[in-house]
Design a protein around this nucleic acid. Structure first.
Lengths: 259, 259
DNA sequence: CGGGCGAAATAACATAGGTGAGGGTCAAGC
DNA sequence: GCTTGACCCTCACCTATGTTATTTCGCCCG
């Protein structure tokens, strides 16, 4: 008998499949489960930065799954204002059932160069009909996505610019950590200050001011698309961050001690 | 053969079961489908205004379905600030799969006196395993709920107070109209200015100012918990309202011409 | 029918964050 | 080695919205 495959989680920016990694935050998956996921994930493409994967008005045909890189959902107003309503990092699905809708009510765009799986409705239902644990995990994923969206609503409605940015940075760090792409307070961070502005409902000027403040207060370093959270405890404090909405507390899941 | 049952939709504030009505915005349901829904909806209770149905930290045990009255989801920050992150009107489900989570990350409270069905996980899976159209419709419901949450994110992030309030009023009118509880620009509107403040991320004072402005501009009347939208077209215009996110355009659905 | 109370309305003043414009840096491409 | 274009950073000024406080309204209840 060959020794069991050990999947390492210990390297920063690991290239381990993020999907399985993310779903395992909720449920232990069997080798077969993982294989089925890998199978469904077979068909992928690359999207260049700032390009739409799918645009408002399009008929959705696939479930998308981010394999590598970052993407965002955004909505645009007739007066030109744009809001990034969510961010996708590796391991994130974009709406497990979208294809039952007639038309997209928002667009999804790549932020970095993006590797994204395209799963057909048929493949999805094959997956869910045969693999109950995966199905459960997918539901969990949807619930967490909804919870994140609610937290963003809270973030925009009630937190100051300073708190809001801090909160976003912590959230992204935690989500990356959960898929093995962040550690020791450090992670890739490809968002420009403009993106941050669109995500937080602030102006780029004010995002700049506020990042300076976070730096001055010794909370973060952020340059060259690298984020370093220097003091996680204080960051959580000032942003009133409560990780409960990420629902990561499952089945002996071990998180970065620093997270 | 008996004549087909005709369900009237034509009365304002009709007491027709809102559930079926809402789900039929997406799919035609058979008599059996409706019966199964009625069955699952059997077990209900009343909740007094301002009371929590379920609180942050609780283990969710039921799927809730609003049969009558209004409710809201809210999140509270340690500094006391409170954000209403969504509103429920008759026919709305509160998270079809919540019970797979360990703990609620937010609370749900009654706004008016509330009649709410409590559906057990078992009843849910009975429903979904036997009634594919209902299952589809429930998925659609979840997708719409997510879309509404995104629109709120956009609303808070990019619209001015004036636009934001106008948008919220139009949205609620449309949603009520879709379940037969609004017509000719009129509907019940039990939210206080404080509730509106918590939902829009504004202060009560500014909500008051802004409502005055909407009145002065001849767009709405609002008193005694009754809303009258006087000029729907202009309201949609000023709030940049695009109904696409409600995904109501299905299978010959007929909407209030005024909506 | 009068007291009490939640909600709505106003007012005077304060500030977080927006606006518009300009300059600096760095890497990519010719 | 120059141009171009993202991106980041700063400044001076402005305004939408927040704050605190007081008054008024409408309604329930004894």
């Amino acid at each position: 008998m060959p020794p069991p495959t050990v999947v390492s989680r210990s390297f920063l920016f690991s290239s381990e499949p993020a999907v399985a990694s993310k779903l395992e935050a909720f449920a232990r998956l069997s080798a077969d489960d993982r294989a089925a996921l890998a199978e469904a994930t077979h068909n992928f493409r690359y999207v260049e930065p700032r390009r739409d994967l799918i645009s408002e008005g399009d008929k959705p045909r696939f479930v998308h799954l981010v394999l590598d890189g970052w993407a965002c959902r955004y909505k645009q107003l007739p007066d030109g204002k744009r809001q990034i309503v969510s961010l996708f990092v590796p391991g994130d699905f974009c709406d497990i059932n979208v294809y039952i809708l007639k038309a997209m009510d928002h667009s999804i765009a790549a932020i970095t160069r993006l590797k994204v799986a395209m799963i057909t409705p048929d493949e999805m239902s094959a997956l869910t009909s045969e693999r109950p644990r995966v199905t459960q995990a997918l539901w969990w994923h949807e619930l967490v996505t909804a919870a994140v969206q609610r937290e963003w609503t809270l973030n925009l409605g009630q937190r100051s610019a300073y708190e809001r940015l801090a909160h976003l940075l912590v959230e992204l760090y935690m989500r990356l950590n959960a898929v093995g792409r962040a550690q020791d307070g450090r992670c890739d961070f490809p968002l420009t200050q403009n993106d941050l502005a669109d995500a937080t409902g602030l102006t780029a000027v004010h995002v700049n001011r506020t990042l300076q403040e976070l730096r001055r207060d010794g909370l973060i370093e952020l340059e060259r698309k690298q984020l370093h959270i220097l003091d996680m405890e204080r960051m959580k404090d000032v942003s009133m961050f409560n990780a409960n909405y990420l629902h990561l507390d499952h089945e002996g899941r071990h998180l970065d001690a620093n997270a």
